[in-house]
Write a protein that binds this DNA or RNA. Structure first.
Ligand code: NAD
Ligand code: NAD
Lengths: 214, 214
DNA sequence: GTTTTATCGATAAATTGATACTGATATAAT
DNA sequence: ATTATATCAGTATCAATTTATCGATAAAAC
């Protein structure tokens, strides 16, 4: 069997490394080099060279040439395609507070095929505002909105105590995936994709490393 | 040897699960139950019960009792202590833009012992402002500031292309750890702790899951 | 043209992390 | 008091991920 030792799915860690490969490769685009080797990428990004080769093999069809490496342009295209730059997912964001507004204003998600088309909030003071060209509607209007415009990804940036309620609402609105920035576990039916983004949890790791340094 | 099978260090995944245990345990605080078992925590947070027991054993000294489980209050204390709620790390943030302001305004980092005491920006329009009671200074003043007030953690929320420059500056200012929200690999000398928070990279995972659902 | 060499791809080994199993034990029920 | 049982802690197994090894090969050097 040909695919004996190939992992049938690319690991989340590999997926998280792809953007770093991409941004590094893009810095080479303006230079005169057109090939890059796995060992160089590895040393540049502080990774193992075998790992780099495996990662690239997993997502790109291009073969590396001995003594030269991989063609940069092809790699860039393949990574971008894999990352989803040319899918087109509609997203809505619930909770147009501090974090929500930052996400709404961020243009970097388009490179991943995500287009946040509207925001929702329960606070009348927030409703009606325009953030980076995106309107904030009242949460009551969410279901109707999604009936008219099918939405793939729901983004939760409400306080933790309200997150489950919004999660239920988004599922009712038929979103396929939820990107949750509230630091709580959400209960969801099978089939709905959940991606938790627990920003503060990283501090646990930092604290641990700081503690063991002394 | 007694510690034969104990991992000598708690894994990052375990560390990332701790906040979820904590928030779940806190929801029980106001109820009448005072003990909680690993299987219940596991089913509540969609984890394996053995994993829960191992995680708790790794960070808590308390022993669970057969048929009852773990004393909730003790667990809460132990997790909080481990997470770093009572350390006191001074942090500064560089790049008081959309994301930077959201982080400055967030009060949840105190539970992890982080106190962001000031922000810096190179844009005159941002300098002088007050965000959630924290002053924004010009980046030129950063080194002097850190001489007077030693800072443990530097937070980078500048555009990707400026991140390395700010990283170098923070290292010059003698920070012990850098929490980097720019989607680039930073070059740092050994000894400086780097925590990358690549928010957009999560979209790669979401896209992948969406794609394989069909 | 021949040799040298850096890098590839594939396979194997090692490490790490997650899960299953088992005997011990404290609690609750009889 | 005795028995039944849920849960614990420890050990073993399994799975996934990372790292090492090695023969093959295309490019560069001679
Ligand atoms: N700000 C950060 O840097 C940061 C960092 C880590 C995690 N988070 C998490 O992100 C979430 C948002 O944080 P934030 O700082 O933006 O908070 P915020 O208070 O600034 O914003 C929350 C917004 O949600 C709205 N809201 C509240 N309840 C709602 C409901 N039921 N329906 C619709 N909208 C509702 C509020 O009106 C507000 O606009 C929180 O869960 C927080 O824990 C934020
Ligand atoms: N906003 C988001 O939701 C989001 C999401 C993912 C990643 N990020 C990353 O976070 C970083 C900040 O994003 P943002 O949306 O807040 O951008 P932003 O443009 O709103 O803010 C950047 C801030 O940095 C300041 N700045 C620029 N160069 C500087 C320098 N050399 N020294 C000091 N300050 C400088 C700017 O004046 C500005 O205030 C970026 O690297 C971005 O890729 C942001």
């Amino acid at each position: 069997m040909s695919d004996k030792n190939l992992p049938n799915q690319v690991s989340a860690n590999t997926l998280r490394r792809l953007p770093y490969y991409l941004s590094y490769l893009k810095t080479l685009k303006n230079t005169d080099v057109s090939y890059i080797s796995a060992p160089v990428i590895a040393s540049e990004l502080d990774l193992n060279e075998v790992q780099v080769r495996k990662d690239l093999a997993a997502i790109s069809s291009v073969a590396g040439k001995p003594k030269k490496g991989f063609e940069i342009d092809v790699l860039i295209n393949d990574i971008q395609a894999y990352i989803g730059c040319d899918v087109n997912n509609c997203g809505i964001l619930v909770g147009a507070g501090h974090l929500g507004r930052a996400l709404l204003a961020y243009s970097g998600f388009e490179a991943y095929g995500l287009n946040i088309i509207a925001a929702f909030d329960s606070n009348p003071a927030a409703v009606g505002k325009d953030i980076a060209g995106k309107s904030v509607y009242h949460t009551d209007a969410l279901l109707d909105f999604c009936k008219k415009t099918p939405v793939t990804i729901g983004i939760i940036t409400v306080p933790a105590e309200d997150a489950q309620e919004i999660c239920d609402l988004l599922i009712k609105a038929n979103v396929k995936a939820i990107w949750n920035f509230a630091p709580v576990k959400l209960c969801t039916p099978d089939g709905v994709i959940i991606q938790n983004e627990n920003i503060a949890a990283s501090l646990t790791i930092i604290n641990k490393k700081l503690a063991e340094q002394f």
